[in-house]
Design a protein around this nucleic acid. Structure first.
Lengths: 267, 267
DNA sequence: AGTTGTGAATGATTTCACAGCG
DNA sequence: CGCTGTGAAATCATTCACAACT
């Protein structure tokens, strides 16, 4: 998951496990699609398929919300949409500010799915004076100087940070001081925030790196399957950088888990 | 976390747990920052703080890679950068295509951190004929018609989908047929892909919904703490939509976990 | 003396499998 | 009969706490 919570120990909130909470939006999206097609009821099997999970997990997830299904029949789509929306707090709408109106910030401001489900972009904020007043997504960009006033005037509790990494920590501190308690961080930095503030992080390069890991593993398996003839060991030379004398002294006795032994011995 | 893998049972890859793999990029980023400041060694405690995790978890994570530290001293920064990069497959560079050059796609194309660490944008692809040839991030946009040729000419294994939701499934099928085996999906849809293809998903509105859940919970706690005087129950009327007769018949016997009972009884 | 590496303990999540109900 | 809801089992992840090593 491209996502990752930062603070707050993985404790249950109101009895609902975190892993379940993270899936509720998926279910909600699948249910909304069914609702638009006027499908009245759906089984756990069908809904699970639409959401990309297995049905046992889905049923267990729903069991934390209550008994909202009908045995032998399934779930009432509209009713479930309402219950999940309520559970997620989407029956009210949340004003959100986006800080950092560069390429990404502008893309986020223009993102339609934003407004549709319970969220409303209350303001766009940027530190560049040249941006001030420029319309983005039909809304004038405001200057960082007014951040605190914007937050409190609009009763904003959720902030989106799309600034460069260097500015993110400071922006988060100002947001929090002004009353924000939930942050969605697109900047590639670990934010440190006080207790009670939730941070979720979306990080493109982390996602790509995780994919690269699996991709590499696939390539390795493939090579191992094909190999046997050419004795080309994939592992490059260790290239140990001896920057620290103390650590360097111990360098001789390194052990990898199995990395130094090629999966397939050269013949 | 904004992320979520889609396919492939959560099995270990080469003995390294998935949860650990997901943290390696974080460690790598923190280590790279230390490296730039020419810090030679770092303890698990320090590095953990920089990466936003606790030190026991970090040490356990590293233990899956091998014994790369020195007791009494810590970890050699350069050496660890290299080992983690290698483990993540970043010692080679991965050509990547971005499909869907709208606001988001353009933002991704312009994102610097992309090129820096092992990834190279090999092509930008869009279905709009009007976009063809237009330069985005210093690179001409190519038309979807040529997708297959672009993938195979460049040996691309990783694709990024930034199209509207409606196009995503079809695009993924074409990417996969042409040889892509890892997909980073920004479209708000569940992709269904064959075995052996990895999908990671980044979804703005899911992240916001998870934040809203916690935000709502905070508001509830606060209200409960303050309350006792005003008897304003937060729970809205159930609003049951009777779309399905069968399910409706059973509507009488609903039970929520505790949702129908206000946390604080009105006096 | 200081810090890693890791078994053992704990906790969270997923999966199984089936009783219970409509 | 079909499908939900859920204990119990299995798996996965985190944390503890300390022996091992420099």
């Amino acid at each position: 998951m491209a996502t990752g919570r930062t603070h707050r120990p993985a404790t249950r909130s109101r009895g609902i496990p975190e892993a379940t909470v993270a899936r509720l939006p998926l279910y909600l999206r699948a249910l909304t699609a069914l609702s638009e097609r006027s499908v009245p009821t759906v089984s756990s099997e069908e809904l699970a398929a639409a959401a990309g999970v297995n049905s046992a997990k889905l049923r267990k997830d729903f069991s934390y919300l209550g008994s909202y299904g009908t045995r032998g029949v399934g779930y009432d789509v509209e009713y479930l949409v309402y219950q999940i929306s309520r559970e997620l707090g989407l029956t009210q709408d949340w004003p959100v500010v986006i800080v950092g109106i560069g390429n990404l910030g502008a893309a986020l401001a223009n993102y339609g799915g934003f407004a549709s489900r319970g969220f409303r972009v209350a303001a766009l904020i940027d530190a560049d004076p040249a941006m001030k007043g420029k319309p983005v997504a039909g809304m004038p960009v405001q200057h960082t100087d007014d951040l605190e006033k914007i937050i409190s005037d609009n009763g904003v509790h959720i902030g989106v940070i799309a600034t460069p990494a260097g500015a993110a920590q400071q922006v988060s501190e100002r947001l929090i001081a002004a009353g924000v308690t939930s942050i969605l961080n697109f900047a590639p930095t670990v934010l440190s925030v006080p207790d009670g503030v939730d941070v979720r992080k979306v990080d493109l390069s982390i996602e790509l790196q995780i994919l690269a890991f699996h991709e590499q593993r696939k390539a390795g398996e493939e090579a191992a399957a094909v190999a046997g003839a050419a004795g080309d060991v994939v592992t490059p030379p260790p290239l140990r950088a001896d920057t620290a004398a103390a650590a360097a002294a111990a360098a001789a006795s390194r052990k990898g888990p199995d990395g130094d032994v090629p999966a397939v011995m050269p013949a």
